[in-house]
Computed example of a mutant assay.
Amino acid sequence: MAAVPVACTQDRAPAPPTLAESRVRAAWLFLAPLVVLMVLVAGWPLCRTLWFSLTDADLKDLGAARFVGLDNYTGEFGVLRDPDWWRAVGNTLLFAGVSVAIETLLGLVVALVLDADFPGRSVVRAAVLVPWAIPTVVSAKMWAWMLNDQFGVINHVLMTTHLISQPLAWVADPSLALGSVIAVDVWKATPFMALLILAALQMLPTDCYEAARVDGIHPVTVFVRVTLPLIRPALMVAVIFRALDALRVFDLVYVLTSNSRDTMSMSIYARQQLVDFQQVGLGSAAATVLFGTVALCTALAITLGRVRLEGAAG
């Protein structure tokens, strides 16, 4: 009886990783230390803050904290039922919206001016960055002296030029305080926006502008149809960065107006609950809501920017 041949199968060797897979692995390898550091520096404090927001923790004795669920959020004395919190939310959103809008427009104008070729351009670029280079607390204290209603230089100049008839309490008057804070923030943060936009302008190709100049297209049309779409990604990044800073504003407002309800931001409200009132649970709840607000605004900004870019590309 003839033997029946048996087919021998050999295990195939695994396919070598593709170039894309190798790059992904290398990227994760390089990012691993940063991810671990972020978890230790940001992740642990965030989780601890979230836990404290669910307890009745007191600054005097954190070990005696008891779990109270969502009482610090929606309870009778919770953050979301406190009129001062919603006032702080309104102040923060108004501050962020107005200041970022003005800074973006002024930063775009300054960047366009600095992008032009004129004598002394390097000196002007360095001088424009001075307000941004000054520490926030120092600049806020400097402006607090200048805006003082009794001996401030702002009132002196305005009264000398007969623009006002009597000194104004710029940071004490409820109708002027928030506007004064916004003006100081615009003075300080506009160079940051200009720097990011200028970097984008420096990367633009010159052949498009040469073709437009040869065709005799108006410079305004070139800016709207060519420059603005090309710098839109960098502009979106600059707006997101500034919006995040504006939503988390603390030092500028606190130095200029302290705990004033007329200018209190969400960060100052959380600090007041934590330090002044020593209510760690309520302060942690306010900080958690602030974190969620910032994260939500960031996600919306990135999503809307991506949709606009994809729509423009399509």
Rank of each mutant, 00 (worst) to 15 (best):
37 L>Y: 09
48 R>A: 10
11 D>Q: 12
95 F>C: 06
142 M>W: 00
59 L>V: 00
118 F>Q: 09
78 G>V: 00
275 V>N: 09
134 I>D: 09
98 V>S: 04
220 V>W: 14
105 L>P: 09
139 S>G: 13
265 S>E: 10
237 V>W: 03
108 L>G: 14
269 Y>A: 03
147 L>G: 02
114 L>Y: 11
195 L>G: 01
255 V>R: 06
52 F>A: 03
78 G>Y: 05
47 C>E: 05
16 P>Y: 10
122 S>V: 09
158 L>A: 14
204 L>K: 04
261 R>C: 00
126 A>Y: 04
107 G>I: 04
291 F>R: 00
270 A>R: 01
138 V>Y: 01
18 T>F: 06
186 V>R: 02
140 A>L: 07
49 T>F: 01
199 A>S: 10
206 T>H: 12
116 A>T: 15
290 L>H: 02
243 A>W: 03
112 L>I: 08
227 T>A: 07
292 G>S: 08
236 M>C: 14
55 T>S: 12
201 L>Y: 00
233 P>F: 08
215 D>W: 12
178 L>D: 04
232 R>P: 02
184 V>M: 11
62 L>T: 06
133 A>Y: 05
119 P>V: 12
204 L>H: 07
165 S>T: 14
134 I>F: 03
296 L>M: 12
261 R>D: 12
201 L>F: 04
160 T>L: 14
57 A>I: 06
301 A>C: 11
77 F>A: 11
34 L>K: 03
124 V>L: 14
253 V>E: 07
277 F>M: 12
255 V>K: 02
25 R>L: 14
35 V>A: 15
270 A>D: 06
92 T>W: 11
19 L>N: 10
283 G>H: 02
231 I>R: 10
71 D>I: 00
126 A>D: 08
254 Y>D: 10
159 M>W: 09
22 S>Q: 15
274 L>A: 15
133 A>K: 02
67 F>G: 02
